[in-house]
């Protein structure tokens, strides 16, 4: 079932259209920066963006920073919300279940396919960022890239840390994916499931900016999203990265369990 689901995901035009759409904004930003040479002042704007004018090899990270807070989670909400509800809408859910595919297997296969989609999207954004950085923005300076802490990173270290960042960004989407999957089992409308997930994310973002919600902050799914920046400090600051992974893992466990509980005993009437 997992294999079938992955092939289905790769075969859908939607997958590729979404990934292409995700890459539009970083491309526009790269073009604007290269034409105007007006970068944000250091310390403002999306992470790394201040540095890319002089050093294009950091642009993959800047591009991830651009899509991560909004576009990527929306894409995950749409794909995840479609997982079960979309099958219900096309009428294929009942045929999969009587084939028979176990309900638990179907959920896992859907989760794996959403995660694979996120990985594909993040890698696409990073690779596109790399190309854009090389073509449009500053070339790597002799002596390697400067880390956020001010020390030099050689190419090998940069590649390693970039791969870590890709992995971390992918993991950051696990929580969204699980919430979307849960909503997807509750309704037969893929749009409703996606919007519900986006609603949760907006709520989390609003609470994050509210001082009165201080005590809730560590538990919000969006809290540690941008902590992948810490992977480029020297030495790497792991605290928030680890917390971020643990937060996502908790959301994954709770909402996947909820999804299973709601789906395993559900009357499939679609």
């Amino acid at each position: 079932m997992i294999r079938v689901e992955l092939i289905q995901m790769l075969r859908r035009p939607r997958t590729w259209i979404t990934i292409a759409a995700l890459n539009v904004l970083p491309l526009v930003v790269a073009i604007l920066l290269s034409v105007t040479e007006l970068g944000p002042r250091p310390g403002t704007g999306p992470p790394f963006l201040a540095a890319v004018l002089s050093d294009g090899s950091l642009y993959p990270l800047a591009a991830m920073g651009i899509v991560l807070p909004l576009f990527l989670p929306i894409a995950v909400a749409v794909v995840g919300g479609d997982a079960i509800a979309g099958e219900a809408q096309t009428g294929t859910l009942r045929y999969l279940l009587v084939r028979p595919v176990r309900r638990g297997h179907l959920l896992i296969a859907k989760l794996v396919s959403v995660v694979a989609f996120v990985l594909l999207a993040v890698v696409a954004v990073a690779v596109a960022g790399l190309v854009e950085g090389q073509l449009l923005l500053g070339r790597t300076q002799v002596g390697g890239v400067v880390s956020i802490s001010g020390t030099d990173l050689d190419t090998q270290a940069l590649v390693q840390r970039s791969l870590l960042a890709v992995a971390y960004v992918t993991l950051s989407m696990l929580g969204v994916a699980a919430v979307a999957l849960f909503f997807s089992t509750l309704t037969d409308s893929a749009i409703a499931a996606a919007l519900g997930t986006v609603g949760v994310l907006i709520a989390s973002t609003v609470l994050l900016g509210l001082d009165a919600a201080e005590s809730l902050r560590p538990f919000l799914p969006t809290r540690y999203w941008l902590s992948f920046v810490d992977l480029f400090r020297d030495p790497i600051r792991w605290t928030e990265v680890v917390r971020g992974v643990l937060t996502q893992a908790s959301y994954l466990v709770v909402f996947l369990a909820a999804a299973w509980a709601s789906f395993a005993t559900k009357d499939v009437k679609s």
């Binding site: 294999r3 079938v4 009428g91 294929t92 045929y95 999969l96």
Partner: peptide, 21 residues
Amino acid sequence: GPGAYPHLSGRANLATVDAAG
């Protein structure tokens, strides 16, 4: 009523549901 993936051909639909089980 039938249920099928709209973006796939009839043939691919049969093969997909078959492979899932």
